[in-house]
């Protein structure tokens, strides 16, 4: 029982984000309203972003900005930087890109939803399928 507890405490971040991803994926597939599907898409992509960011964490490390870098230490000699003091900057960089991509996809999807609504006056997928089949 205690090892299970230790395992959970060591990896609970990954589990939480995977559960969040699956909630978003379920909403994208199962919901009927287009807006709810879009919200599910957003939750899914955000959970992946959080998953990546949690990879970069190091215990007792600070944000990846080097302090007193330019002329901070007077006569203290060259700056010594220990890698263990700063968290990994690479997942943050990758996720900046992923956030931008998710916003761009959301914008294009909203534009498409507006076009659908202008034509059919409804956003429910079963009604839309009926309308389109009748055409």
């Amino acid at each position: 029982m205690t090892d299970f507890f230790i395992v959970v405490m060591a990896k609970y971040n990954y589990w939480l984000y995977i559960i969040l991803m699956m909630i978003g994926l379920y909403a994208m597939i199962a919901k009927n309203n287009l807006m709810k599907k879009l919200v599910g898409m957003n939750i899914f992509q955000t959970a992946i972003i959080l998953f990546y960011i949690s990879i970069g964490y190091k215990i007792d490390a600070t944000i990846p900005i080097i302090e007193n870098a330019h002329g901070g230490g007077h006569g203290a000699g060259p700056l010594v930087i220990h890698a263990a003091d700063y968290i990994n900057p690479l997942p943050h960089v990758l996720m900046l890109t992923a956030i931008v991509v998710s916003v761009a996809t959301f914008g294009v999807a909203m534009a498409l939803a507006i076009k659908v609504y202008q034509r059919y006056q409804t956003l429910e997928e079963d009604e839309l399928r009926m309308h389109i089949r009748e055409k």
């Binding site: 994208m28 898409m41 899914f44 999807a109």
Partner: peptide
Amino acid sequence: DRSPMASLNYVFIGVI
């Protein structure tokens, strides 16, 4: 009439 909905379906599946 049909392409916005077809494209929106493609959006969802493509994002997955």
